[in-house]
């Protein structure tokens, strides 16, 4: 009987979505607010990448919210996984894997930071770069060559990075602006590394926080999994 209810629900929901899809005119989105955002994005923030301008400028509060959601997920993960005993280690990695991870680690760091720091110029940014940074620090755990990142250090990085993001936002408030207003917008020319005012700093904070959060979460999962990861 419950299975019948499930099927009924799914069929009804699918029908609803299907009929909604029919009424929506795909391919001709109304650009009421969107066009205005597009027109102002680059000039208003000095960031050559319009996506970053929207992410950190127009919808900076959403980005702060997303960071907090990630923090909440990592904290909740720690709460759940922290209760388990760490199991035994997996089999030791071979020489090739070990050498490979040592070789990869600095390269991934460079790529990660490059993507974070060029977020306001090219596609990429704090979230994408942060994931690469997290992967770099998780490599030793995967290869079984190290204990992975130090939890105390990760905590400091994630705590301070989040605080810096909010402090940059509050700095605008203290200098007479509004919370999360981009500052120093006309410092530097468009398409230069040092441009777009405080936006690259915000992205750096995002990148470090995302990296620390994910690395911590991955390390927690590897530990809780008893070395199976």
């Amino acid at each position: 009987m419950p299975r019948f209810a499930t099927v009924l629900f799914l069929a009804g929901f699918a029908f609803l979505l299907f009929s909604l899809t029919l009424t929506l005119g795909f391919g001709e989105p109304p650009m009421r607010a969107g066009q205005g955002v597009l027109d102002q994005a680059v000039a208003g923030t000095g960031a050559a990448n319009a996506v970053s301008a929207v992410l950190l400028g127009f919808r900076g509060l959403d980005t702060l919210g997303e960071l907090s959601i990630l923090f909440a997920a990592a904290t909740a993960g720690g709460l759940v996984l922290g209760h388990r005993r760490p199991g035994g280690d997996g089999p030791p990695a071979g020489a090739i894997l070990q050498a490979g991870t040592r070789l990869l680690f600095p390269l991934m760091l460079v790529v990660g930071f490059y993507i974070v720091l060029h977020g306001h110029l090219t596609p990429g940014g704090g979230f994408q770069g942060g994931v690469i940074l997290a992967a770099a620090f998780f490599l030793p755990v995967l290869a079984g060559t190290g204990a992975g990142p130090d939890h105390a250090l990760l905590r400091v990085v994630e705590g301070l990075a989040g605080t810096v993001f909010i402090l940059i936002g509050l700095a605008a408030l203290w200098t007479g602006g509004v919370f999360l207003e981009p500052l120093l917008v006309d410092r530097g020319a468009l398409h230069e590394l040092f441009s777009a005012g405080t936006l690259p700093l915000l992205y750096l904070a995002v990148g470090l926080k995302v990296g620390a959060e994910l690395a911590g979460l991955l390390a927690h999962m590897a530990r809780a999994g008893g070395g199976e990861a």
């Binding site: 923090f71 301070l160 909010i166 402090l167």
Partner: peptide, 21 residues
């Protein structure tokens, strides 16, 4: 009023760090 959102967030981010200190 931005403080109503910002302050609890900062406190949440810093709590684990400050607790260790």
């Amino acid at each position: 009023m931005a403080y109503a959102v910002a302050l609890p967030l900062v406190a949440a981010f810093l709590l684990p760090v400050l607790h260790n200190a």
